[in-house]
Amino acid sequence: MKREVIRCEMLGVEIGGVSVLKGLSFSVAEGDFLAIVGPNGGGKTTLLRVLLGLQKPSEGVVQVFGAAPGRAVGRIGYVPQRLFFDREFPLSVRDVALMGRIALKTPFQHYGKADMQAADEALRIVGLSALSNRRIGALSGGELQRALIARALAGKPQLLLLDEPTASVDPEMKTTIYDLLDHLKSTMTIVLVTHDTGTVSRFVGRVLCLNCSMVLRENPSASPGGEAAQQVYPYPVDLLLHESRNPR
């Protein structure tokens, strides 16, 4: 049996008295490629923040690598949705990738040769080797997104969490990023928050819908249904606030 990487049981999250997630149960096994889809406000990013230990659940059980979220920092790579940073920050692309190594270092340690190599290797994987000395603020949207993926990969994570990595890039770059994830999925567990319900069904193993019924009603053709559903739901996934438990 494959090892369980993430386990949520009856997870509920309230932010400022508003229930964002409720009664959510699912698990992710080692090697899974899971997409979390759903409308804005459906709790996708909140769920990711819970898994990262940035948001405390108000009820239920969450375990990541068998421990409370936030306890397995060296094993998780995180790619945020968009990074608001100073475009003039004096930092090279390589320095940003190098930051992905920080979880593996103790406070007094400085980055060493092995860290440099891991950062360069991560930049090579995402195809940014040629730009590694460029200022991070000089990158285009798609390049920046790949640099953030490189930062996550530099720590050689076993679990990669991505929050809408294709939200701010053009369609061609989207394909590049999905090809990259397709390539990575053989080496690590991936959980992806996305709006690309159509594209994503070609790549991912499972889809977790948060409050999906709205999406299904509004735009059935783009939902993870139809012929893709067979691959998408190899086993049941608990759906939140659903009238129909299965979009098929």
């Binding site: 990262l52 230990g53 920092v73 995180y78 945020p80 992905g100 920080i102 979880a103 720590g155």
Partner: peptide, 8 residues
Amino acid sequence: EYAEVSGV
């Protein structure tokens, strides 16, 4: 935020 999730 990234520093935080990296255990800093």
